[in-house]
Simulated scan of single mutants.
Amino acid sequence: MRASLLLAALTITSSLAFAHDHDKAAPRAFIIEPANNATVTSPVTVKFGLENMEVTPAGTENPNGGHHHLLIDTALPANLSLPIPADAQHVHFGKGQTETTLELAPGKHTLQLLVGDHLHRPHSTPVYSETITITVKEAEKQ
């Protein structure tokens, strides 16, 4: 009898745990502004969005957390199991920042967010935004 009750309790508990995990919405990264296809002047303020995941600084281990990396005029890294590069096209926001101001040359540019874990690696299921395109026009001379 005890074994039957224990088995029933474990079955219910594991079913509830599965239902709870199964119902979680997937994390989503997105660029709040500028809007896709916007025409802007430099410097450009870029605001980052993240849903169903916490923004946590680099070095802070949190399976449901990470920090933003802004990809400028480049595609996602080919190998998403490696740390995200740190260069002019892969800008790290390891302090947990959720916006930045960029100096961009006139012309078309692409922007995309990629969330990294505590070691700057994409998560096992990578969290990244859609790529947006903006056009930077020359500032009017005064």
Rank of each mutant, 00 (worst) to 15 (best):
V115G: 02
H118E: 09
R121C: 07
A75G: 05
S4V: 08
P126Y: 00
P122G: 02
L6D: 02
P34R: 12
L16N: 09
V55E: 06
H109I: 04
T60W: 13
T125N: 12
Q97C: 03
L10G: 05
T11M: 12
D23V: 00
A29S: 12
D21M: 10
G96T: 10
A139Y: 09
S42N: 15
P85G: 01
P43K: 00
Q89L: 00
F18A: 05
V40P: 07
E51W: 02
K141E: 15
E51M: 11
P34Y: 11
T41R: 10
T135I: 08
N79T: 03
Q142Y: 11
E54Q: 08
K108E: 15
D23M: 02
T110R: 01
L16C: 13
A139K: 14
V91S: 05
K141L: 15
P85N: 04
S81T: 13
G107M: 07
A35L: 15
L7S: 08
F48L: 03
T125M: 08
F18V: 07
R28H: 11
A35D: 15
H69P: 04
D117N: 15
K47E: 14
A38N: 12
H123K: 04
E140K: 11
A25L: 15
G59P: 12
Y128K: 00
R2D: 02
Q112K: 05
L16I: 14
T110D: 05
A29D: 13
L76N: 00
M53Y: 11
K108Q: 12
T11A: 15
L50H: 02
N36I: 01
D87M: 10
A9V: 10
H68C: 03
A88I: 08
A78I: 00
S81I: 01
Q142I: 13
H69M: 01
S42A: 14
I72W: 02
G116Q: 00
L104R: 11
T41N: 09
F18W: 14
V127R: 06
V91I: 15
T11V: 14
P34C: 09
H20Y: 15
M1C: 05
H118T: 01
P34N: 13
T11N: 09
I134C: 08
K108W: 07
M53Q: 10
H90Q: 03
A139C: 04
L114N: 01
Q142M: 06
A29Q: 09
T11H: 08
L70T: 01
P126E: 03
D23L: 03
L10D: 06
T100C: 01
H20S: 13
N37E: 15
A75D: 10
V44S: 11
E99Q: 14
V136M: 13
H90V: 04
L6Y: 03
